[in-house]
């Protein structure tokens, strides 16, 4: 009698990842009210920043001149784009945490491609939802928030978004590794936090980095958020294309960041998995 072995080829990986993606979508849409609320929540959060920006706008009129004096639009676009990057970064950590607390991670580790397929599916789901939220607000809200959108420039905008999202995958894997390496198991991790605070304070999410000291501006250039936000604002609010020198420069930097961060993040994540295997930490129950 012949034996059967588990497969670890590309078609198996793709089919497993798609299954995990489908599962995640099914779980997310299982409770209708929660799905609707989830989609609308980002819109309402953006509204808060919009009105706050309207209130403080007289104080930053000078810095907003390059953006048509539209501080509210500046803030909303920054909030949405940074939220997209943060969602991408946290997607891997959230997938690991869900697998751990749902007692499924141990099960996935029993298959050669189990964890990579699960992460791909789950992170892919988080990315889809983040893009969906962004798209809803882009279609409905940006006009309401006073952002004049250059729709003809959509290919450039999409390219910037995709390259920017890829550039933070490595950071996301590093964030996920802290689940096991630093025992950060309660739905928050230090990597995402550091990225969030730095990007909020110096990368231009809520105000132009020009107002910061020059050494801080140089430090800001190390963050993917800085380049994404600058390129995105130029593309959305000023219609700059991929050939624009600043946009091209930012895209190149994001590409290099992707090449550096992704392998490093993957290495840290593998380290975390090995630690969990050694200590029996794939599940909270022995």
């Amino acid at each position: 009698m012949g034996f059967e072995y588990k497969r670890h080829d590309a078609p198996t990986f793709i089919s497993a990842a798609l299954f995990c993606l489908k599962n995640a979508i099914s779980g997310w849409t299982m409770f209708v009210s929660s799905t609707v609320i989830d989609l609308l929540q980002t819109f309402f959060d953006a509204t808060i920043f919009f009105f706050m920006a309207v209130y403080v706008a007289p104080g930053v009129a000078e810095q907003m001149a390059p953006f048509g004096g539209n501080y509210a639009g500046y803030v909303v676009l920054g909030f949405l784009a940074a939220g997209l990057l943060d969602s991408m970064m946290k997607s891997f950590y959230n997938a690991v945490a869900s697998g751990y607390w749902g007692a499924q991670f141990e099960f996935y580790d029993a298959f050669p491609l189990g964890i990579p397929a699960y992460l791909t599916g789950a992170a892919g789901f988080n990315l889809l939802i983040a893009l969906l939220r962004f798209a809803i607000i882009a279609l409905v809200g940006l006009t309401l928030f006073g952002v004049r959108v250059e729709w003809g420039n959509s290919p450039a905008v999409l390219t910037i978004l995709v390259v920017g999202l890829i550039s933070v995958i490595g950071l996301g894997l590093a964030a996920a590794s802290t689940f096991f390496l630093l025992n950060a198991k309660r739905w928050s991790d230090p990597v995402s936090w550091v990225a969030h605070i730095l990007s909020s304070l110096i990368a231009g999410v809520y105000f132009p980095p020009d107002i910061l000291p020059s050494w801080l501006q140089r430090f800001a250039a190390l963050l993917p958020h800085f380049h994404l936000l600058r390129a995105l604002r130029l593309a959305v609010m000023a219609g700059a294309g991929l050939g624009h020198p600043v946009v091209a420069h930012d895209l190149a930097v994001l590409g290099v960041m992707a090449l550096v961060f992704v392998p490093s993040g993957a290495w840290l994540f593998r380290l975390g998995i090995h630690r969990a295997e050694r200590l029996g930490q794939f599940t909270r129950w022995v």
Binding site: M52, A53, Y55, V56, P58, G59, V60, V75, T178, L182, N183, A184, K185, R186, W187, S188, D189, P190, W193, H196, I197, S200, L201, Y206, F207
Partner: peptide, 29 residues
């Protein structure tokens, strides 16, 4: 407080979000 990293992050996240709001607020004359 069982997970020390997360407990610390909980405090830091609150603090840093507060800082962001107050920085925006400081722009107002």
């Amino acid at each position: 407080t069982y997970f020390r990293v997360n407990f610390t992050l909980d405090l830091l996240v609150v603090f840093t979000n507060f800082i962001i709001y107050m920085i925006i607020a400081s722009f107002r004359p």
